Simulated scan of single mutants.
Amino acid sequence: MTYVVRYFFDPGSGICLWAKNEATREKFGYPIDHWTLPLPENTKRALQYLVAWFDTSLDWDAPSDSDTYWSDDELQRFRLAARKGLELLRQELPSQLYEFIDETDA
């Protein structure tokens, strides 16, 4: 059995991990709290930082007025950091149990 996990950010959700298959939903639910995964503390904190950082991409005073509140440079910095976050997940959780699907640019 493999836990298939979608990796993407949704402003205000507090989550960057989402169940892709039934086995994953049964074990973790649909939104997956990264704090419950068997990850090192620093990785959990790095993911939390990414979630909080992504929340700043939206103009909360007018959320429907724009796709992103960030400059192109800020968006590129975030995308690079998000890829590093995904790499950490793939390195620290066994690939025979966890499969991560990158949907950050979807």
Rank of each mutant, 00 (worst) to 15 (best):
D72F: 09
K27Y: 02
L17Y: 11
G29I: 12
Y30H: 14
V51C: 10
Y30V: 14
A19E: 12
L37I: 13
D72A: 14
P11S: 14
C16K: 10
T24Y: 07
L58Q: 10
L75Y: 08
T2A: 00
L37P: 05
C16E: 11
R83K: 11
R79E: 03
Y7C: 09
S13W: 03
F28S: 00
I32S: 08
R6G: 04
G14Y: 09
W18I: 02
A23E: 01
S57K: 15
S64Q: 15
A62W: 15
L37A: 09
P11Q: 06
R6W: 05
L47A: 05
R77Q: 00
D67I: 07
D73P: 02
P31R: 05
F54G: 11
R45E: 13
D61Y: 08
K20M: 13
G14S: 08
A62Q: 15
V4I: 12
T104H: 01
P94F: 01
G12M: 11
L97M: 14
D102M: 14
D10E: 07
P94K: 03
Y69I: 01
E22L: 12
Q76S: 00
C16F: 09
N21R: 14
Y98S: 05
D59A: 13
L75S: 04
D105K: 10
Y30A: 14
A81H: 09
R90G: 14
A82E: 06
G85E: 05
S64D: 14
R90K: 15
A106T: 08
D10L: 09
Q91K: 01
D102W: 13
L39N: 02
L97G: 04
R90H: 05
D10T: 06
L17A: 12
W53L: 13
E99F: 03
A81P: 11
G29H: 09
R83V: 10
F8G: 07
R90Q: 15
A81E: 15
W53T: 10
Y3H: 08
K84S: 14
Y7W: 12
T56V: 10
S95A: 08
K20P: 06
G85M: 01
E103K: 10
K27I: 02
R6M: 07
S64L: 15
R6T: 08
K84Q: 07
L89G: 10
Q76R: 00
K27R: 04
D33M: 10
L37E: 09
Y3C: 01
L89Q: 09
F9M: 09
I15E: 08
F9C: 06
E41M: 00
S95M: 00
R25S: 06
F28E: 02
D105F: 02
V5F: 03
P94G: 00
K27F: 02
K44N: 05
F78D: 02
I32R: 06
Q48P: 03
T24S: 00
L37G: 14
T36P: 00
D59I: 09
R79N: 06
Q96A: 12
K44H: 13
S71K: 13
A82K: 06
P94E: 05
S66D: 07
P11N: 10
T36K: 01
A46N: 11
Y49T: 04
Y3L: 08
A46R: 08
Y7D: 12
S66P: 04
M1E: 02
G12R: 05
R90T: 13
G85K: 01
R25F: 06
K27C: 04
P40E: 03
D33N: 15
Q96G: 14
F28R: 01
K84T: 12
F78N: 00
K44W: 07
L37N: 12
R79G: 01
